[in-house]
Design a protein around this nucleic acid. Structure first.
Lengths: 203, 203
DNA sequence: GTCAGGTTTAACCAATTGGTTAATCTTGCA
DNA sequence: TGCAAGATTAACCAATTGGTTAAACCTGAC
């Protein structure tokens, strides 16, 4: 049966292992053997649970949800002043990335390789973004912020939140940071980013 | 001889083809066959000119320089007010990326995969960055800008310049842009970014 | 012409890898 | 106990791919 303790345990071990390896190596870089090893099982058993690599990939990243990124978007659309929404969003974003630091690089990479499969993940934030755009335009009309394409603002926020993780090897290298120093560097950003974003658009 | 017209032409065709394929697919994603095809030659001839894939890769990206990125760094260190240096740097950066839009994503990706080979490319800007850091700290002491870790400022600038290209599939998708609209979106940034960066740090 | 050198190619090789098969091992149950 | 069905494995297969080899093909010098 598919409800035995061992079953679910095995299937879960596979999903967990696959998620880790996929995040580290990307779809193209992962070897089914490595997933099997990390799950402590045979490679054939992998194909017994998931027909092939593509299906395993989609099961992990499309079916199983996007690992806590959706709560983050909602921070953008609370009934709060624009600046407070930005602060909350940036903070929540940093917490989410701290839980899954490899995710930004992974997602950007896979989307460049094959957009059609993972773009649905991106769409989950669409509603929140649209409401955020409206709030930005409203603040603009009230003269609270400078005139700016809301999409540019959105890209600016995302860039400052995600880029440091995507470029972490460069940053560590040129800044002479070890892992600990880098974490502090990122930690400092979680408040800095919001304040500088606000400074950049405040009228 | 290695100075015949045909020779150099063949070797150049290979280097050009390799550069294109590597930029599109990354080191791991490129197939030697595809490079050979794009160069219009046999796969064996590829190995006749370049012993193996790794050597071809390093020849293209380490030996042959970094394709115009070094002139950009110098814009950071001219004898100009800080804000003018930032404006010039951002503008030059956008021009450089426009010539080679795939380069940011490629570099970030390869560095995450195997830092040791390409980090020397990053080091070419070290001198310029250090002088820039000094100028930032000087402006800080004169009270022209707010207190900020110059490294954070540097990351902020790089993030806004590079991230849109790394995340181009997402941006096109959520913004409903085709290639032309995206180019306009980027074009708008080439002046917007510098002004917003300056707003974010101006005292 | 022809011969020697570098150039180009077709055919081949070995290793990797996604995926399959058939046999073996558990386990719950009649 | 013994059987049936799912779980697990070792061995295997076919396709891809980086790399090699030996032969063929210029082309310029004598």
């Amino acid at each position: 049966m598919s409800s035995t303790i061992t079953d679910t345990s095995t299937e879960d071990r596979i999903l967990e292992a696959a998620r880790n390896v996929f995040l580290r190596k990307g779809m193209m870089g992962t070897r089914m053997q490595e997933v099997a090893d990390e799950a402590g099982i045979n490679k054939a058993l992998l194909h017994y649970y998931f027909r092939n690599k593509q299906q395993l990939f989609e099961e992990v990243f499309c079916v199983c949800g996007q690992h806590g990124m959706q709560g983050v978007w909602e921070e953008l659309t609370q009934e709060r002043p624009l600046f407070d929404n930005i602060r909350a969003f940036v903070a929540a974003f940093h917490v989410a990335i701290e839980r899954e630091p490899l995710f930004p690089h992974f997602l950007l990479n896979e989307l460049q390789r094959d957009p059609k499969h993972l773009l649905k993940l991106v769409d989950l934030g669409r509603g929140a973004r649209e409401r955020f755009f409206q709030q930005v335009m409203a603040a603009q009309q009230r003269g609270e912020i400078i005139p700016i394409d809301p999409r540019q603002l959105m890209v600016n926020i995302m860039a400052w939140c995600q880029f440091p993780h995507v470029a972490s090897p460069i940053i560590k290298h040129v800044g002479g940071m070890d892992q600990k120093a880098f974490k502090e560097f990122i930690q400092e950003r979680s408040t800095l980013v919001a304040e500088l974003i606000i400074r950049s658009i405040r009228a």
